[in-house]
Design a protein around this nucleic acid. Sequence first.
DNA 1: TTCGCCCAGATTGTCGACAATCGGAGTGGG
DNA 2: CCCACTCCGATTGTCGACAATCTGGGCGAA
Lengths: 226, 226
Amino acid sequence: MLIQVPEQGTLADVAAHRLAHSIVTGELAQGQKLNEAELAERFGMGRGPLREALRHLEGMRLVTRIPNAGTRVVVLDRQTLSDIYGVREALEGMACRLAATQMTDEEIAKLSKLLDNHEEQIKKVGGKVYSQSEGDLDFHFQIARGSRNQMLMEMLGSEQYQLLRMCRYRTSRKATRTKPALQQHRQIVAALEQRDGELAELLMRRHIHGAWKSISEMIDKEEGAA
Amino acid sequence: MLIQVPEQGTLADVAAHRLAHSIVTGELAQGQKLNEAELAERFGMGRGPLREALRHLEGMRLVTRIPNAGTRVVVLDRQTLSDIYGVREALEGMACRLAATQMTDEEIAKLSKLLDNHEEQIKKVGGKVYSQSEGDLDFHFQIARGSRNQMLMEMLGSEQYQLLRMCRYRTSRKATRTKPALQQHRQIVAALEQRDGELAELLMRRHIHGAWKSISEMIDKEEGAA
DNA sequence: TTCGCCCAGATTGTCGACAATCGGAGTGGG
DNA sequence: CCCACTCCGATTGTCGACAATCTGGGCGAA
């Protein structure tokens, strides 16, 4: 659904997808250096296609490259994360406003159902926090789809601008705040059902702002500990 | 200023920059196929670096690639342009709101001065419509800088998401609407001087919305003629 | 001791050649 | 006359080797 099949196209494409996945899931640590020869062997291909994959990732800002000094996974410091959440607030708010007028009744019903599943999983306690996070991702992406704005969809959910997804994986597995989040999701769906775009936008912005505040505190604590 | 030096890094980097520039200025037509061997010879390099450059552009969505069938310049149809302007409205509005509280007095004064130059050039009649468009670009970018949000700056002005710039070059040279645009710019600067973020956002959104309406009509006319 | 130089080892950048695949012209049959 | 098949040229995908550059450690002189 969100994770697309490895795409049996060129080797460079599969490498780009695998690397992108490894990066957003945190399997590759931030700032980690990416050795071309090593990765090429791991993926069973030559260095040519692998370099192309790295250039692709560089284009979407998942990695940083310094000439003659290698490429590294991008580092999301506190300031960058703050910036990202600010942009997300604007974009997802916009998506909500549009979705309120553009989504079909069926889509909204499906969204509501998604939250039911979500609640179910939370009751069964936290073994599967990961899938919970994945579900949250799905919720936000479905709304982006509902906006009927292709660019918005790409920025928020698709392979493009994975940065937004990256911080989620990095933070949301800590799994605080799942219950208030669910509550807020319900409120948003209610606003969509009433076709109240302004309210939906307001609620979404508040939801994301709250998420950032929570994550921000968490970072402060981590840094205090370290 | 906005156009960065060709960057004497790797060959792939200079190719990426030259191609990106050719695309956003319209020197390379939309949908045009890009032949690897031909471009490589034109730039005086092998196909390796050139392919990397294409992969980079693919990452930033300036070109589309179909396996075993070559890469083409992205095509901005009417729907895509509409989507882009919608996103720009949200992002530049946000930039304005932030800039109202973040910009220094000096920066705002400089912005006002920029508009003076701008007005000067308009009075000298339109030989240099191109530079007028460049000036408009600068105005918007300076505000993005004023937001102090790095991600916003990259999305709106820097090399990333050149799509936004691309449609400008393609449309704004027609040079209608320069005077009302200048008027709106003045209003925005006035709002910034008063540190009224809400008003500044409103004005910017209206400004961009108006620009889209104007461009949309122009496209309709073109399609009607064709 | 400490600073600077120099030299390997490793890593990145570039090229040329070869294999795989696609599109289209030409041809033959219905 | 039209459709389908085949083959060929052109273009893309991939690999291996070589050149250029950086990094880190050892050595010698002040």
